[in-house]
Design a protein around this nucleic acid. Sequence first.
DNA 1: TGATTGAATGATAGATTCATCAAGTCGTCA
DNA 2: TGACGACTTGATGAATCTATCATTCAATCA
Lengths: 125, 125
Amino acid sequence: MQPFLSDERRPLYEVKANLFKGLAHPVRVRILELLSAAGEVTVAELISETGLEASHMSQHLSVLRQHHLVLADRRASQVFYRLAYPQVADLLRVARILLAEILETTHDRLVSTINLPSLEPETAR
Amino acid sequence: MQPFLSDERRPLYEVKANLFKGLAHPVRVRILELLSAAGEVTVAELISETGLEASHMSQHLSVLRQHHLVLADRRASQVFYRLAYPQVADLLRVARILLAEILETTHDRLVSTINLPSLEPETAR
DNA sequence: TGATTGAATGATAGATTCATCAAGTCGTCA
DNA sequence: TGACGACTTGATGAATCTATCATTCAATCA
């Protein structure tokens, strides 16, 4: 495993693919969205919000930390997480825009597939 | 496997994670970047550009198609690929911006780690 | 101090993804 | 037609990732 970007000679597309790997899990996306919305959240809140087992949550948070996507700091007995950069939220936003486009197009295609090749004559109308 | 977004009741963060999965491989990022830059590229060009084995390239192209990220069309004996949506290029761009930010911060931290806790007195200068 | 709660780490089996090779499809052209 | 070039699909072992359980660490408080 080498989710780090330490090696500056690594081609950009590898580093970029690596970033996407860090985002490639529903739980991690969910975490980042919660942090985007709330600014700062404790692990306990993340757990109750997602229903995940604590150690499982910790593992995903660890992945996000290794990818430099979130920052943690401990205050008293709790650990608070937040986005490491506002650009992380930008990335999620742009992804959502792309998905909206894809879903719309796919939906349209589906609808026209249903409507056009019908062998029956239009009923009523 | 279900890289499709057919199920509209699926929570958005799952669909989003799935999108990122489609992007989570250096070869696929590379392909998308080539398509972003050139508009339209044949499989043969992608192969010679990346040095990949044909079947391997095909598999990655298949993943990208399933994720609705690229479109293929056959003209004569060759198959041309292009981005399915300009927003795909946007996503790559935003990722690059985020990475630049991360790399800069990481680099700065590294430099200050090297400079500050030095026990030696500054040499010459 | 010892017990308790919040969180991280280690270990591991099961699931997914990747790279490679063999085989198949589709179009062109001799 | 049939042989070749351009791709795609299928199958498979190796590598990676995920979910779960057990253990450990860190801070609070009785």
